[in-house]
Computed example of a mutant assay.
Amino acid sequence: MPSIFPLARWQIEAYHRAIHLVRGPHPDCPTCAGHGGIEVYQQHYEEPETELCDCWDPTPVIRLPLWFRRTERAPF
């Protein structure tokens, strides 16, 4: 289970053999109020759907490996 340490908009996750840096939603966003998602109600559906706000893109992750893997070389 990764451990998460919030640091303003940044989250630091220690996961396996690497540290992941993820930028979260803007805390002062007037559209989503810092949640990163907007609930959109459809006419035909009872439950709302959640769409991503423009202030946050969860895709980019900075990965910092704690140590590098050894590569085995062919013996010939």
Results as ranks from 00 to 15, higher is better:
56 W>V: 09
8 A>K: 06
69 R>M: 09
47 E>V: 09
38 I>L: 14
8 A>T: 14
63 R>A: 08
12 I>E: 00
19 I>W: 01
60 P>H: 04
16 H>K: 13
75 P>M: 06
73 R>S: 09
44 H>Q: 14
51 E>L: 06
59 T>L: 09
28 D>M: 00
44 H>T: 11
11 Q>K: 12
21 L>I: 15
1 M>C: 04
37 G>K: 06
70 R>Q: 12
30 P>Q: 05
68 F>Q: 13
7 L>M: 10
49 E>W: 02
14 A>C: 12
24 G>I: 05
64 L>M: 08
13 E>G: 02
71 T>H: 11
20 H>E: 09
75 P>V: 06
64 L>E: 00
11 Q>C: 07
31 T>I: 12
43 Q>Y: 10
5 F>Q: 08
26 H>K: 11
32 C>D: 04
62 I>W: 09
2 P>G: 09
33 A>D: 14
69 R>V: 00
3 S>T: 15
46 E>D: 14
34 G>R: 02
64 L>Y: 07
48 P>R: 04
15 Y>C: 11
14 A>G: 11
35 H>C: 02
69 R>G: 11
58 P>S: 09
24 G>F: 03
58 P>L: 06
17 R>D: 15
13 E>Y: 06
65 P>C: 04
21 L>Q: 02
23 R>L: 15
9 R>K: 14
47 E>T: 12
60 P>I: 02
31 T>S: 12
58 P>W: 03
14 A>L: 13
11 Q>P: 01
58 P>Y: 05
71 T>P: 01
40 V>T: 10
2 P>D: 01
66 L>G: 03
28 D>S: 13
29 C>T: 03
20 H>I: 10
71 T>C: 05
71 T>E: 12
5 F>W: 04
29 C>M: 07
22 V>G: 00
29 C>E: 07
76 F>H: 07
57 D>L: 07
7 L>S: 07
65 P>K: 00
